[in-house]
Simulated assay, not measured.
Amino acid sequence: MMSELITITEAAASQVKEMMKHNEEEGAFLRVAIKGGGCSGLSYGMGFDHEKNEGDQQLEQHGISILVDEESAAILKGTVIDYKQSMLGGGFTIDNPNAIASCGCGSSFRTATNTGKPEEC
């Protein structure tokens, strides 16, 4: 099922919609991707995109169109994206069941089958 690839919570979707509105990106896709780098080897990327590429998987959740490229999809399967508010502000949290190791900053990780290209922390 496509919805099992990534789950975006209502809190995260609400924040994404606010960011789209603030940045005049209404109608854009939310692209979620994996990039090489970070101290554990892989890092997450999220941003707005107006182009759907060949091989992209598209899903709709809470009124947001999400794009994931083919390579990232395998690593992101089952990932939950949430938004948490705290006294110091707010931020997105990404819970990826495929990550076997992550660094203290929480934005870098590796999986059992993909170690990426670690950088010095």
Rank of each mutant, 00 (worst) to 15 (best):
M1Y: 07
M1E: 13
S3E: 15
E4P: 02
L5F: 08
L5W: 10
I6A: 04
I8A: 03
A13Q: 07
A13L: 09
S14W: 04
Q15K: 15
Q15S: 06
K17Y: 05
M20N: 06
E24T: 09
E24Q: 15
E25H: 10
E25S: 14
E26K: 14
E26C: 03
G27W: 10
A28C: 11
F29L: 12
F29R: 04
R31M: 11
R31W: 06
V32S: 02
V32F: 12
I34K: 00
G36Q: 15
G36S: 14
G37L: 06
S40M: 06
L42Y: 01
S43R: 12
G45T: 07
M46C: 13
M46R: 04
G47S: 07
F48S: 04
F48I: 07
D49W: 10
D49M: 09
H50G: 15
E51V: 12
N53L: 09
N53E: 15
N53I: 07
N53V: 05
N53Y: 08
G55Q: 04
D56H: 07
Q57F: 06
Q58V: 13
Q58R: 10
L59S: 09
H62W: 14
H62L: 11
S65F: 06
S65C: 05
I66S: 01
I66C: 05
L67E: 04
V68D: 00
D69H: 06
D69M: 10
E70P: 05
E71N: 09
E71I: 12
A74M: 09
I75S: 01
I75A: 05
I75V: 13
I75P: 00
L76K: 02
G78A: 06
T79R: 02
T79I: 09
T79N: 10
T79S: 13
V80D: 02
I81F: 06
I81R: 00
D82M: 03
D82F: 06
D82W: 02
K84G: 09
Q85K: 10
S86I: 13
S86D: 12
M87R: 14
M87Y: 13
M87C: 13
L88I: 14
L88C: 12
L88S: 09
G89S: 07
G89N: 11
G91C: 03
I94K: 00
N96W: 03
N98T: 05
A101S: 14
A101R: 10
A101T: 10
S102N: 13
C103E: 02
C103L: 02
G104A: 14
G106L: 06
R110S: 08
T111N: 03
T113F: 08
T113E: 15
N114K: 11
T115S: 14
P118M: 07
E119S: 10
C121I: 10
C121G: 13
